[in-house]
Amino acid sequence: MLRFRHLSITLSMLLFYVLCVNAQQRDSKRFAAIENEKVAYITKELNLSQAEAQRFFPVYNQYNKEMWALKSEKTGSSADAPRGASSFNGSGRRDVLSYDAKELEVKKEYRKKFAEVIGNSRASQFFEIEQNFRELLYKELQRRNK
């Protein structure tokens, strides 16, 4: 009887693991599809030539990686604070303003890098286009939930 119990617990844990991995793969496919749509949207809205896109998107990928790291730190997904900023103020509460300030610094830094590739006007326009994409994504999510 003890053997059967041990076997059933092991099988249950294995099934749980398989289901979790499968769910993560589905989520990563959805995320990849959204990222592909975002790249296409940015390319279209910034009117990037193929040569510009080849130079722009490696810089964009670095920017995106830094922004994701900051957002996960801000929401508490990571224990590390942004470079040069403390994640907690003296009262033990997370200092959201320091994350917002760091986010602004990163955007200013990458605006310069984007300008080297696509020019000042389109580099400035990028952040508006990125926000517009987020709004479109949010509206689509709301539409699907109705």
Rank of each mutant, 00 (worst) to 15 (best):
D100W: 05
E45R: 06
Y63D: 10
R83V: 15
N132I: 04
R5N: 01
N36G: 09
I9L: 10
K65D: 11
F127R: 02
S12Q: 01
F57W: 10
F126D: 02
S12M: 03
R111Y: 03
F31Q: 12
V106R: 03
E105N: 09
R94I: 04
M13D: 04
F31H: 11
T10R: 12
N64S: 12
F56N: 12
N145P: 00
R134F: 09
N61F: 05
F114A: 08
E35Q: 14
I34R: 14
S49Y: 07
K139A: 09
Y41E: 06
S98H: 07
K108S: 15
S98G: 08
L11I: 07
N47V: 13
S8K: 03
H6N: 03
S12H: 00
Y138A: 09
S124H: 02
Q142K: 14
N120S: 13
A101Y: 04
S98T: 11
A123G: 07
I34A: 12
A115R: 05
E45F: 03
Q62P: 00
R26P: 01
V96E: 09
S28A: 04
R111P: 06
N132C: 01
V96L: 11
E73L: 00
S78N: 14
S28Y: 02
S121H: 07
L141G: 15
N145K: 13
K65I: 08
P82H: 05
L137I: 02
S77V: 07
A85G: 02
R94H: 08
N61E: 14
E73N: 04
K112Y: 07
F88H: 13
